[in-house]
Design a protein around this nucleic acid. Structure first.
Lengths: 249, 249
DNA sequence: CACAACAAAAATTTATAGATTTTTATGAAA
DNA sequence: TTTCATAAAAATCTATAAATTTTTGTTGTG
């Protein structure tokens, strides 16, 4: 055998076969997270190990790891010795998450603006531009979720607060965004036909670039509050059975 | 045999035998967390499975679970396929955490005060009173950490922001508090001999009870900034080897 | 001195065994 | 007959141990 050649072969193979080359737990985490956010795994559903191992074709250990991470993200609930459940939803939690997001992102936006740089302003301009050029729905007739729009939407809001100078604060905002994103996707009327979200995004950006922090914060919080309002109207996504005991977990 | 009696016996036994009656993963989590916060497990140390299983006398599964939770808490770092490490520390991270804590807790305190109730004010009064009556050090001669004081200190700060009406915000503040607590305990000069922290706590409470939000926020942020300042002075806790590359992870 | 092949260590994953909880069925009392 | 309590069974979560894969350190060769 030829030693030199053999090693080269192996190397090239290694580089080709594991494309993202990440651990299995991370792969399951990503897939599970997507299924949670999309609502394919409905709220308060029990997440049985056996079911999940068969669904994702993996072992228990990577699954437990993924479920633990998702618990920290607030998308999964872990009851001691009783297994995992998809995090429940409620009107009160939606209201609380929205309130918190408004508070915290207002803060982060103000700090971002206070530390503004030309580079950041250009990033924001770009993010807004790209988002505006991307169709909200894949289908012109009926609404069909466009993953690329969702990604760019995420990037846009991330950019708004991204200049605040605190990784932990940005991460916290990301968590809140994820949890609220699930409510959005769960809500049937995702299209928001009456709203012009693109205009809202543009208006926020304009206020930011003009240096008017108060106005920018007002527009941003109004943006979030309106989204929550629309979802709160949705009669279907909140199980009407226990309407009274709507308290957050 | 007497059916009725037997059942009572079993019940009482069950209630007695598992005192904390929690899962093993939680037990390991608590112990590991304490060792992390106290600094017994020093920053950037590698956390080998074998070492930990022997140290805590447990299996790998509960350990992985605990480590994953602690990663979410920011006390442990998880490098993909390279194992777990104790989260590193740096001056820049300390500064960033402090800055973030000041921002977020100012927000939370204002909201707490805006939603003030007699019950909450009484809670705060009690928390302050108990903290003030507890000695900072177990030993009058040299400083010796008093766990009860630390616990009450935690409760006090938790109470300050606890009326803000957002569980997620409170939890985030708790995370920041934990991470900063580790810096405090890592710092050799824990005693802070020149400071009168009890007076500071009292002053904050007085401002809160008098309804002066601006003043309360000023005192609280000054409190945190001074603590950070003292730790930043500490030459020993930051490894001087790589002073230039002091960036946060 | 650099690079590749080998060997050792460590992390991740699979598989198996042990506990705990929930369900179901049986029997006694109202 | 209905209801409650008990006991057994089933299901499921938790933990241990073994196997696989990946990474890291060492040695030998060009």
């Amino acid at each position: 055998m030829i030693p030199g050649l053999k090693h080269v072969d192996t190397t090239s193979l290694e580089l080709a076969s594991p494309p993202p080359s990440s651990t299995q737990a991370s792969t399951v985490y990503d897939r599970l997270r997507e299924d949670l956010l999309s609502g394919r795994l409905e709220p308060s559903r029990k997440l049985q190990m056996r079911f999940l191992t068969e669904l994702y074709q993996t072992g228990q250990t990577p699954l437990r790891e993924a479920l633990n991470r998702l618990t920290a993200d607030g998308l999964v609930e872990c009851r001691e010795q009783r297994g995992f459940y998809v995090a429940d939803i409620s009107r009160s939690e939606l209201a609380e998450l929205t309130k918190t997001r408004c508070w915290v992102e207002s803060l982060a936006l103000r700090e971002s603006m206070a530390a503004s740089t030309p580079q950041w302003e250009e990033q924001l301009l770009l993010a807004q531009h790209r988002l505006g050029r991307t169709p909200r729905s894949l289908n012109a007739e009926h609404f069909e979720d466009n993953p690329e729009w969702e990604r760019l939407h995420r990037v846009y809001h991330r950019t708004l607060i991204g200049n605040c100078g605190s990784q932990s604060l940005i991460a916290f905002c990301g968590q809140l965004a994820d949890q609220l994103y699930r409510y959005r996707r769960l809500s049937i009327r995702k299209a928001f036909p009456s709203r012009h979200v693109t205009d809202e995004h543009q208006a926020i950006m304009t206020a930011v670039l003009s240096g008017d922090a108060d106005h920018a914060v007002d527009l941003l919080t109004a943006h979030y509050r309106q989204t929550a309002e629309v979802i709160l109207q949705d009669k279907q996504i909140f199980s009407e059975l226990h309407e009274g005991e709507d308290a957050a977990s």
